[in-house]
């Protein structure tokens, strides 16, 4: 399969995924407690005739598949309803919060990738040594840490005791430091483990052996041959970790009172602000789908073997 055909195929497969995600949101809306009209009015419930008129206007009297089709249609056109409590369109609210979450996610991807690569490099240079075991331990520790507790500990040390950084909120780049470190900490273990494995795999390949046979210095071999060739699977992993990180961001944001998607989701659950909740879940899911798609395509571009498998 040629590269372009592969891209076309992947895009085609992504279409039903997007539709299914939007349908999930629709059914979620149906499952959530409280019907939309009751929730919309809150304190002041309308008389039955107003309710009936509204049901007709909102199409709630139609069969469920008609409602689903209408919902998907509106969602695709960017109409995700309005916040029940403030009347703000969900799209504009979510768009604003989304940028904040993206900043946090990207910052922690950068930190965790750099630190993870460094750890992997150290342990892959001396496989099965003491330092390799230590890195392994650190890695397991990394993905065993509850990110919310780790966040609290960072606040305790860096903002309560040392008073170096703000404990939360979003005021300038300084308030991004602690949340992104917290989120990076729980992610770097996976990256280190995987990168180590990827490096060791390259390490045993012929061209590396040949390079060493030619008498290149060990460090040069590591950087020039091993690291460079292991980069493809590593980039792919980092891409796929994006979704996990976005999920992690949801929790991290709550610890640091960081106004992103995560806080929006948790707040909207407490506030029963369902349009905002559904919009947020859809946006994150769709982002992950798009990122995965890009990574797939990129991977296929870099490694032609993948296309054949598809």
């Amino acid at each position: 399969m040629s590269f372009l055909r592969y891209v076309f195929y992947r895009l085609l497969v992504a279409v039903p995924t997007v539709l299914i995600i939007i349908s999930f949101a629709f059914f979620l809306a149906k499952l959530l407690p409280g019907d939309p009209i009751t929730v919309m009015f809150g304190e002041l419930q309308p008389p039955p005739e107003v309710r009936k008129a509204l049901e007709e206007k909102l199409g709630l009297d139609k069969p469920i598949y008609v409602q689903l089709a209408a919902y998907v249609g509106r969602a695709l056109q960017g109409d995700w309803g309005k916040s029940i409590h403030t009347g703000e369109p969900v799209t504009s609210l979510v768009a604003r919060r989304f940028v904040a979450t993206l900043e946090l996610t990207l910052a922690s991807i950068i930190i965790s990738t750099l630190v993870g690569l460094l750890l992997a490099y150290i342990s892959a240079s001396r496989p099965n040594s003491a330092i390799d075991s230590l890195v392994r331990l650190i890695s397991i520790g990394s993905y065993s840490i509850p990110v919310f507790w780790w966040g609290l500990m960072l606040i305790l040390v860096f903002s309560v005791n040392l008073q170096l950084l703000p404990p939360g909120g979003k005021e300038g780049w300084r308030s991004l430091v602690l949340p992104s470190i917290a989120l990076a900490t729980v992610n770097l273990g996976m990256i280190a483990r995987f990168s180590r494995a990827a490096m060791l795999e390259v390490y045993t390949q012929d061209f590396v052996t040949a390079a060493r046979a030619r008498g290149f210095a060990e460090r040069l071999v590591m950087i020039r041959y091993v690291l460079r060739n292991a980069l493809v699977p590593i980039v792919t992993l980092v891409g796929y970790r994006f979704g996990v990180l976005m999920g992690g961001a949801v929790i991290t944001e709550t610890v640091f009172n960081y106004p992103g998607m995560g806080k929006t989701i948790v707040d909207s659950i407490f506030a029963r602000d369902y349009p905002v909740l559904l919009g947020s879940i859809m946006v994150i899911s769709l982002t992950v789908v798009v990122v995965n798609l890009i990574v797939d395509i990129l991977y296929a571009f870099l490694d032609p073997r993948v296309r054949v498998k598809a």
Binding site: L28, L31, G247, V250, L277
Partner: peptide, 18 residues
């Protein structure tokens, strides 16, 4: 495939919301 493309935390949150 679709469910796995949604971060697990979000699925859990959605279930709790319901």
């Amino acid at each position: 495939d679709v469910v796995m493309s949604i971060p697990a935390v979000l699925i859990a949150l959605a279930v709790v919301a319901v």
